[in-house]
Design a protein around this nucleic acid. Structure first.
Lengths: 140, 140
DNA sequence: ATTCATATTTGTAATTAGTACAATTATGTC
DNA sequence: GACATAATTGTACTAATTACAAATATGAAT
């Protein structure tokens, strides 16, 4: 795994320091769209000298090189996503969880804007109440 | 106009105080997706006793009743939109402006998620470089 | 009109995510 | 091994937003 992470960073023009690999690996193995602070809290015990600033620096670097996505879903904190493939997000207003959602290819095609501007990114965010909170459990 | 604002607030179950009408009217007449502070700065001269806190309170109230949209487009500040009809947003990475964009009806239909959850809202955000910044001017 | 309960507004203080910056440490090259 | 460069670290700072309690306005009942 660690070898994959190293290669992935290098492919994005990022020198693979231990700290960067740790952050990237965390995002690859945790699809919870964590905040910078959650990542720091998770890595800190096994990397006692790790600095919060390094986590922020690293996340900004990863996002600027397209290695991760910075999601402005939560008004309070930026959330990060190690999965850069095309997908939408669902924010549960009840529990705050962010779930991945598929986007149909033809819907995506129709979303292409007609005006002659440069579009780098399209983000789709659903807001509502997730399965668990909506008591889908009653169907089990 | 003021009568419209008053009626609009009441239709959303909001008692139309002067402050609330001023904030709502500002959002109805300025489609720039302003921040709370921009609204405060614009209203403050003509309402000298207006408090920043009131603007924040009012915007949160308006958003919670569906009278305005709170846009989590900018990671730093929440932006507000007095137009609650279906449309997408375009954020220019260069100048920071947020422009409204139409969304094709059939694209919207295809975006309906298939999973059985309650979806209250779908937000679509394009990121790129806007016409002016991309030097569409050369075509004039 | 006066009183009273409730709703709203206000200002200050606190919170908190994120950044700036300079010092320290690590890395790679000659 | 020495040196230039890059990365990391910790502290101090910024700025958006909220908490809170006091002051003010509003509306109903007498």
């Amino acid at each position: 795994m660690s070898a994959n992470v190293q290669e992935y960073l290098m492919r994005h023009g990022i020198r693979p320091s231990l700290q960067r690999m740790a952050v990237m690996e965390y995002l690859m193995t945790h699809r919870t769209h964590p905040t910078a602070d959650e990542i720091y809290g998770a890595l800190s015990p096994s990397m006692p000298t790790l600095s919060r600033t390094t986590v922020y620096n690293t996340l900004n670097l990863l996002a600027s090189r397209g290695a991760v996505l910075a999601l402005d879903i939560d008004a309070r904190q930026t959330r990060f996503d190690g999965d850069t493939s095309l997908h939408a997000h669902f924010l549960c207003k009840s529990c705050g969880a962010i779930h991945d959602m598929p986007v149909a290819d033809d819907a995506m095609r129709m979303l292409r804007p007609f005006v002659p501007v440069q579009v780098d990114d399209v983000q789709i965010l659903y807001k509502g109440v997730c399965c668990e909170c909506y008591k889908c459990k009653t169907n089990d």
